[in-house]
């Protein structure tokens, strides 16, 4: 199977380049991550992140044949050759397929991604009906892999100002939580032309999310809440 892999080692390479490599022993059912690990056995300089191997840790988001996804749950059989493997778009490349996600994490931290409760907490659990809890489905499952934000043109254009789909999905995860008491503050922090409103519903985020989540929808919900809040 033929691969074309983005290579860049800042210590030795003047510029990034695409390297053509071939893997001869392909097992049925192999995922892209399995192939990358095999390739690394032949050339240990090839650098990429990975960990759980089953799509829950979010380490190994890459740009695969032009589309963002997790290498560990992308079957080779689903990919046309030569398989183009690049780092996540729009992020500074540290080396090969490893990108610097500092900005991405900064946005995540900025939306205050934790439950805020002002009242004294009860002795037992907060009660939450199954229907209230269901509102968190499709939100809390985010693995922070970065596939969505780095597929978003609005995020490419305003990486410092637009929070990006991942952070906004998490923002809505707390807005939607019946236990959270910081709705007004959360909404206020998203006002202005950039942080939230740079989303132009291009939908790349929902298209690529490896967990099947829909940040565009969450952003739409925040916009609705914000309108209500302003009125």
């Amino acid at each position: 199977m033929r691969f074309s892999i983005y290579r860049y080692n800042p210590e030795t390479d003047k510029a990034p380049y695409m390297q053509d490599v071939e893997l001869t022993e392909i097992r049925p059912d192999m995922m892209l991550l399995d192939a990358l690990r095999e390739l690394k056995k032949n050339d240990e300089t090839l650098s990429f992140r990975f960990s759980c191997g089953e799509g829950v840790c979010g380490s190994d988001a890459l740009n695969i044949n032009g589309r963002n996804g997790l290498s560990c749950i992308t079957p080779l059989s689903s990919l046309a050759e030569p398989i183009q493997v690049r780092p996540l778009p729009g992020m500074p490349v540290i080396r090969d397929l490893v990108v610097d996600l500092t900005q991405f994490y900064k946005h995540y931290r900025s939306i205050e991604p934790y439950l805020i409760v002002h009242d004294p907490v009860p002795e037992e659990e907060f009660l939450q009906t199954p229907e209230q809890r269901e509102k968190l489905d499709g939100l809390y499952e985010c693995i922070l892999c970065g596939a969505c934000s780095t597929a978003c043109p609005s995020f490419w254009w305003n990486p410092e100002l637009f929070r990006g789909p991942a952070a906004l999905l998490q923002s809505y995860r707390f807005l939607a939580d019946s236990r959270d008491q910081a709705t007004a503050d959360r909404l206020q922090a998203l006002e202005g032309p950039y942080r939230l409103f740079r989303c132009h519903t291009i939908m790349n985020c929902a298209e690529v999310c490896p967990k099947g989540l829909n940040p565009t929808r969450a952003i739409g919900e925040i916009k609705k809440l914000l309108l209500k809040h302003i009125i």
């Binding site: 439950l115 907490v121 659990e125 907060f126 809890r133 707390f174 236990r179 959270d180």
Partner: peptide, 11 residues
């Protein structure tokens, strides 16, 4: 739970 863990719920 108070920290925000989204436990599944009973009726």
């Amino acid at each position: 739970e108070h920290m925000g863990v989204p436990f599944s719920r009973l009726d």
